[in-house]
Nucleic acid binder design. Structure first.
Length: 313
DNA sequence: GACGCAG
DNA sequence: CTGCGTCAACGCCTT
DNA sequence: AAGGCG
């Protein structure tokens, strides 16, 4: 509930279990898959289940599950839910709350040739940078090889601002540590840790804290203290069995995440200051009515821009 | 996993 | 009542 | 319509 309460949440359902060779649907019409994302509330939902109507970048809407009590995720589990995907917003009396994120999510994704340990080291650098900016971040394992850092923010900014903040932070981190990349195109990333700032777009979610992942051994996206993170050698050791034991015996390191919330301004300042950020792809969306067509720096064109965003040739 | 429909 | 088919995500962009 | 990105 610490991760899901009042948050519009999509489900990742594996109703026939998780076994070798099973596949997650790549799209809504992928009939041969064994698992699928579910955004809209399914028929037959219990009456205690609350929902929130979220708006996608296209302007379409969907009624999503919005857990308010533990029975809701339990029911989802009965439906074969393995992983929960909450939005970075919380339903409240404020009618704008679904458009005002309360959570900045820093997604550190090890690229081929790098490891979880590399991500942990970069996470430490990210922590230092956050501290210098007056922000407190809470780390967790992704459940795979990555690390996620969450920053609780005041719900005063739009998704576009959230994304800009993430780009600003990513570029600052990239500038500070040459094992970090924010390159959108895979072939430009190198053997580095990819800061996936696009996870802060509207309609983009990350596997929640405490969620199982559909992988051998049932690894868990595990909340940790910073010192706890540094001691993890293999994130697969944090699993269905060990994590509940840890949380029971040592307590939950995320209990204080709601005690304070921060301004996005320091990060927006980075976005405005650091060059090249506005050239990153994809651009902000949704495209507003009347907005001129977008010019993507195509892969070919993109190679003509250097790290500072200056045109080459 | 659950629903709707044909049998 | 049983069996079977069907359904269960989103979207931006370029080629 | 398919491919690239998550």
């Amino acid at each position: 509930m610490r991760a899901l309460r009042d948050r519009p949440t999509a489900l990742e359902r594996w109703p026939s279990g998780v076994r070798e060779g099973m596949r997650l649907a790549t799209g809504p019409q992928d009939s041969k898959a064994d698992a699928f994302y579910q955004k809209r509330v399914p028929k037959g939902a219990p009456d205690y289940l609350e929902t929130a109507t979220v708006t996608f970048p296209s302007g379409r809407t969907a009624d999503e599950i919005c857990p308010t009590e533990i029975a809701v995720p339990v029911w989802c589990a009965h439906m074969g839910t393995i992983t929960f995907h909450p939005w970075p917003v919380r339903r409240s009396d404020d009618p704008t709350s679904l458009d005002r994120p309360d959570e900045l999510r820093i997604d550190l994704d090890p690229q081929p040739g790098t490891t979880f340990s590399d991500a942990v080291r970069v996470a430490g650098v990210a922590r230092e940078l956050l501290e210098e900016l007056g922000l407190r971040g809470y780390p967790k394992t992704s459940g795979n090889r990555g690390v996620h850092i969450y920053v609780r923010i005041e719900p005063r900014w739009e998704f576009t601002d959230l994304r800009h903040a993430a780009i600003g932070f990513g570029r600052a981190l990239e500038q500070r540590d040459d094992q970090v990349t924010t390159a959108w195109w895979k072939e430009e990333r190198g053997e580095r840790i990819f800061v996936d700032y696009n996870q802060n777009n509207r309609d983009r979610t990350i596997a929640s804290a405490y969620s199982l992942r559909p992988r051998p051994g049932a690894p868990v996206s595990t909340p940790l203290t910073w010192s706890g993170l540094a001691e993890v050698t293999d994130p697969r050791d944090l699993n269905l069995v060990t994590v509940p034991e840890r949380l029971a015996s040592e307590g939950d390191p995320w209990t204080t995440i709601d005690d304070e919330s921060f301004s996005l301004e320091p990060l927006l300042e980075l976005w405005e200051t650091l060059p090249g950020g506005e050239l990153n792809f994809p651009p902000d969306y949704p495209k507003m009515p009347g907005e001129p067509p977008r010019v993507q720096p195509s892969k070919k064109v993109a190679e003509h821009w250097d790290d500072e965003g200056n045109r080459i040739g």
